[in-house]
Amino acid sequence: AQEYRALYDYTAQNPDELDLSAGDILEVILEGEDGWWTVERNGQRGFVPGSYLEKL
């Protein structure tokens, strides 16, 4: 798994998404072809927009 940093804040719109704060460090589990990536942070897993992340 790769570590990424959130570039922007994101507020989850659905229960299966995660909130992001700019600067958060996340582990990317799966890069979805639809642009939604499965990530894990502090034991929580959910979808976030891949375009909001940069690889560390």
Score class of each variant (00 low, 15 high):
E17D: 05
G46W: 03
F47T: 11
V28F: 06
R41E: 02
I29L: 13
G43E: 08
L56P: 08
D24V: 03
A12D: 00
N14W: 11
A6S: 08
Y8A: 14
L18R: 02
R5N: 05
V28W: 01
L26S: 02
E31L: 05
L26H: 01
R45N: 04
R45H: 04
L7E: 04
Y8R: 14
R41V: 11
S51N: 14
G46P: 01
Y4E: 01
Y8D: 10
S51T: 14
A12Q: 04
L56F: 08
Y52R: 04
W37R: 03
D34W: 04
V48K: 00
E54C: 06
F47V: 15
F47H: 12
A6R: 00
E17F: 03
L20F: 12
G43P: 01
R41K: 13
E3G: 11
A6W: 00
L7H: 03
I25M: 15
N42R: 14
D19W: 02
V28L: 14
P15S: 12
Y8P: 01
A1K: 15
D34F: 06
L18C: 06
I25L: 13
E17G: 05
I25R: 11
P49T: 00
P15F: 05
L18V: 09
Y52T: 08
Q44N: 09
T38D: 09
R5E: 05
L20T: 03
V28Y: 04
W36D: 02
A22R: 12
E40V: 12
E40I: 13
V28C: 08
D24W: 03
E27W: 11
Q2T: 13
G32T: 09
Q2I: 08
D19R: 03
E33F: 06
D34V: 03
L7I: 14
Y52V: 10
A12L: 01
R5W: 06
L26N: 01
D24L: 02
Y4V: 11
P15E: 14
Q13S: 11
N14I: 04
L30P: 02
S21P: 01
Y8H: 14
S51G: 09
E54Y: 05
Y52H: 08
D24F: 00
T38N: 06
A6T: 04
D9K: 08
E3C: 08
G46S: 01
P49Q: 04
